[in-house]
Amino acid sequence: MTGVIDQIGGMLAQAGYPAPMSVLTLSHYLFVSAAMFTLGMVGFLTRRNLIIMFLCTEMMFQAAGIALIAASRFWLNHTGQSFVIFVLTVAAAEAAMALALVVLLFRKRESLSAEEWAEMKG
């Protein structure tokens, strides 16, 4: 356990960027990102609870964040990290709106099911 902390601490102490990263290493992170995105999408498609669905969109945001950070690392460039800040901003805004909507909808139907809201008009 201490080894882990040491190693992480070492990485932190690195401050700037270490040596460039291989494409093959990058591919690992990209795969994790894509897999997380897919899980988020599957969740969005299958779950019927509005809150969980929004949670799944957050998950897809997160996947995008991992990809951005990995790219930032690969390019030795901080723009990717800056983008993650914006992604967080948008995610926060989205969460605020979404949760407000959920509260509103729940008040009207006493249910969180997305299928309650299937009417095309009105």
Partner: peptide, 14 residues
């Protein structure tokens, strides 16, 4: 296909 259910559209989109 136009059921009005959110999931249908999400599947289509994906």
């Amino acid at each position: 296909s136009q059921s009005g259910v959110l999931h249908g559209y999400a599947v289509g989109m994906a």
